[in-house]
Simulated scan of single mutants.
Amino acid sequence: MRDEKTTHFGYEEVAVDEKAGRVRAVFDSVANKYDLMNDLMSFGVHRLWKRHTIEISGVHRGQRVLDLAAGTGDLSARFSGLVGAEGEVIFSDINAAMLEQGRERMLNEGRAGNLHYVQADAQYLPFPENHFDCVTIGFGLRNVTDKQLAIDAIYKVLRPGGRLLVLEFSKPTNKPLEKLYDLYSFSLLPKIGKVITGDEESYRYLAESIRMHPDQETLKGMMEHAGFERCDYFNLTGGVVAIHRGYKL
């Protein structure tokens, strides 16, 4: 049994208090090429995954949205338009370099009025309880040290009737696709990372972190354990990615 004071960093076993710094170093390294790498490694399909997340979020004018692990702001930008001037979107990331990249992008696009930027750890959210109508975390939960702690924290800051959406890499639903995906992830993806960002190891960690992330049913169970109800998930691209949704009732 794994010592309770250790956790996974990809396939490596590390001390719990070491993981956040290791993850931070990964995103410090790739921040300025983050958008380009997303397009290259997903062949642009990440835009469709995020669009589907927006479509099932139920977010509308005047609501409050918390976008965790916001990266460079693909989801935040769309939510900003949906909630309008009377709504609010919190653009949040644990990594300062990513947060600054996202803030610069939003300012360049003229999105300022209803967006607020907060550097925060998803495990320890600095927001009032029962505050948000929707919380999203896109491609970030797998990097969190204690995923259950983060899901519990999200539950607390959602108002009754609010919902959580987790967009994350998941487990392919058929063996041929899984084998092809493994070949791409461990052979090609790190090489693309080396060419574009000069950092092969960060993208090797990415592939490993995806494999260590809970599968669809396990993550659904974690959400139910936190108190979420009517939990479901949507497999996209054959389960390479899944969107999990749950409600605080």
Rank of each mutant, 00 (worst) to 15 (best):
N95Q: 11
I210C: 08
K5H: 09
V65Y: 01
R22T: 07
H131S: 09
H52Y: 02
P126M: 01
R24E: 09
A112M: 12
E208T: 06
Q123K: 10
A85Q: 15
G221V: 00
K19G: 05
D146V: 04
G10W: 07
G198P: 13
D67Q: 02
H244D: 00
Y117P: 00
G110I: 03
I56N: 02
R105W: 11
L36T: 07
A112I: 06
R78P: 04
C231D: 02
E229H: 03
D74Q: 14
E129D: 13
G84E: 10
F9R: 14
K220L: 03
E88I: 03
G227P: 03
K33L: 04
R78Q: 14
N108Q: 10
L180Q: 06
H225R: 09
K171A: 04
A120E: 05
K171P: 00
N143S: 14
V157I: 06
M212C: 06
Y155E: 04
L66F: 06
G238K: 03
F132E: 01
T173L: 14
I192Q: 11
S76E: 07
E86W: 04
K191E: 15
G44R: 14
G58A: 05
M41G: 09
R47V: 10
T53E: 00
Y181H: 04
N95Y: 09
F91C: 09
F79S: 13
G161D: 08
